[in-house]
Computed example of a mutant assay.
Amino acid sequence: MKALYPCDLHTHSTRSDGCDTIPELIQRAAKCGIRILGIADHDVLPISSMEIDGEMTDIIQYALMHSICLIPGVEFSCETLVEDVHVIGYGCCWTHPALLELEAFCTASKMKAYKATLDRLTEFGFPLKLEEVLKQPGGRIDPDKLQKKHIFEAMAKKGYFSDWITAKLFVRDHPSLNVKRQKPEAVRVIQVIQEADGLAVLAHPYLIDEIITTQSGKFMNRGDFIHLLQVQGLNGIETRYTYDKTTCKDRRPNFVLWREIFEHYKDTLLLSGGSDYHADQKRGSKNPRMLGECGLTVEEFFIQPALKRLLSNEQLEFFEF
Results as ranks from 00 to 15, higher is better:
Leu146Ser: 08
Glu131Val: 04
Cys78Pro: 13
Trp164Asn: 14
Ile151Ala: 14
Glu79Ala: 12
Met111Phe: 07
Thr122Cys: 12
Leu100Tyr: 02
Cys92Trp: 02
Asp119Gly: 05
Glu75Leu: 01
Glu79Gln: 07
Ile36Thr: 03
Ile34Thr: 02
Phe76Cys: 13
Cys69Asn: 11
Phe124Ile: 00
Phe126Thr: 03
Lys112Glu: 03
Thr122Pro: 05
His42Asn: 07
Lys145Asp: 02
Cys69Gln: 11
Ala116Lys: 15
Tyr90Asp: 03
Gly125Ser: 07
Asp144Thr: 05
Met155Thr: 09
Leu70Val: 09
Glu75Arg: 05
Leu128Val: 00
Met111Trp: 05
Gly54Val: 02
Leu45Phe: 04
Ala108Ser: 08
Ala63Lys: 07
Leu45Glu: 01
Phe152Leu: 12
Leu99Met: 11
Glu103Pro: 11
Thr166Arg: 15
Met56His: 08
Ala104Met: 13
Phe170Asp: 03
Pro46Ser: 08
Ala156Ser: 15
Leu81Gln: 15
Val87Ser: 07
Val85His: 03
Ile68Lys: 06
Gly91Asp: 01
Trp164Val: 01
Glu51His: 08
Ile36His: 02
Leu128Cys: 08
Glu132Tyr: 03
Glu132Lys: 06
Phe161Ser: 14
Phe126Ile: 02
Ile52Thr: 09
Phe126Asn: 02
Glu51Trp: 00
Ser109Glu: 15
Leu37Met: 07
Ala167Met: 04
Asp142Gln: 07
Ile59Lys: 14
Ala113Lys: 00
Ala104Leu: 13
Thr117Phe: 02
Ile34Arg: 13
Gly54Tyr: 07
Glu123Val: 01
Ser67Lys: 15
Gly139Ser: 02
Ile47Tyr: 00
Val85Asn: 01
Glu103Leu: 06
Leu102Asn: 09
Gly125His: 08
Pro46Thr: 01
Leu100Ala: 11
Lys145Gln: 04
His86Gly: 04
Leu45Tyr: 01
Pro137Ala: 11
Phe105Tyr: 13
Ser77Cys: 06
Gly125Trp: 00
Ile34Asn: 05
Leu99Gln: 06
Ala98Gly: 03
Arg35Glu: 11
Ile39Arg: 07
Leu102Gln: 14
Met56Pro: 00
Lys168Gly: 02
Gly159Leu: 06
Glu83Ile: 02
Asp84Lys: 09
Pro97Met: 09
Phe170Asn: 12
Pro127Ala: 15
Arg120Gln: 14
Leu45Ser: 03
Ile141Val: 13
His96Asn: 10
Ala113Asp: 12
Ala156Arg: 09
Pro127Lys: 14
Arg140Leu: 08
Leu146His: 04
Phe105Ile: 08
Pro143Ile: 11
Thr122Asp: 03
His86Thr: 05
Trp94Glu: 10
Leu118Ala: 06
Ile151Ser: 07
Lys110Ser: 10
Asp41Arg: 06
